[in-house]
């Protein structure tokens, strides 16, 4: 039978963990995003050594399971006395910080590749138009390449963001009390796996939906040129010359 009281109680406790899940998500997305800019710059830049370093990074972090990366950071690094005695330990001894670090490092690899695809898709002619006008490389990047590349990266990035949101569940395995962690705690005491996990899953579902909508809204705002031509074709001249 459906036990409404239990469901409400469970939902309340799970919702209380949403801020933890969301902050894991947002922090790791931000850190990963910043890191990915550096990686993609190295990857497409003119220095072969840096480019290979970036390729290596992407290979490692895309090619190994996020869960193992997280365990290596949380349990693995603690084996080294050097780490435990350094200032890094202030960060690395916290499960939450380790989870953010692992998620950020992992998403940075994927995001760098998404951005690179966006960069490659910037039409050569639009770059040449800027060069022929005497734009410096920085101006060209800021005014032509970056807006076009970022816009083109958004659809793929929204998928990456949703994957990241769901990956935050792994943090529960290093004792972070996010939605999944709290769900498991409730199950251990109540043995009611189905109800609790369905509640948890529905929370992730709503959050993913919101993330997808937010990115779609951003995409829409950034692409007026792909929408229908404004009605009427012409706008009355407000200021005749």
């Amino acid at each position: 039978m459906i036990d409404l009281g239990f469901l409400t109680d469970t939902m309340g406790r799970l919702l209380a963990a949403v801020p933890t899940t969301l902050s894991l998500f947002i922090l790791s997305l931000l850190c990963g995003g910043v890191l990915s800019l550096g990686i993609v710059a190295m990857r497409v830049g003119p220095y072969p050594a840096l480019s290979w370093l970036a390729r290596g990074y992407i290979l490692v972090f895309r090619g190994s399971p996020l869960l193992i990366q997280l365990f290596l950071i949380y349990y693995g690094l603690a084996q080294f006395d050097v780490v435990r005695e350094s200032h890094l330990w202030l960060v690395l001894r916290s499960p939450y910080a380790c989870a953010v670090l692992a998620l950020a490092l992992c998403t940075a690899g994927y995001t760098a590749e998404i951005l690179r695809a966006g960069l490659m898709a910037v039409p050569r002619g639009q770059i040449e138009a800027g060069l022929a006008m005497g734009m410096s490389r920085w101006t060209l990047l800021r005014c032509v390449i970056a807006p076009v590349a970022l816009r083109q990266s958004l659809p793929a990035y929204s998928t990456e963001a949703v994957l990241m949101l769901k990956s935050t569940a792994l943090a529960s395995l290093v004792t972070v009390w996010d939605v999944t962690g709290v769900a498991q705690q409730i199950i251990q005491r109540s043995y009611r796996t189905l109800e609790v996990f369905i509640c948890a899953a529905s929370i992730y579902l709503v959050l993913s939906f919101l993330v997808v909508r937010a990115v779609a809204l951003l995409e829409h705002r950034l692409s007026p040129h792909l929408r229908e031509r404004p009605a009427g074709g012409t706008r009355p001249a407000s200021k005749p010359l």
Partner: peptide, 13 residues
């Protein structure tokens, strides 16, 4: 030295 291209190359955004 301004240039005009065969394929216009306007900035579409």
């Amino acid at each position: 030295m301004a240039m005009v291209f065969q394929s216009f190359n306007l900035w579409t955004h």
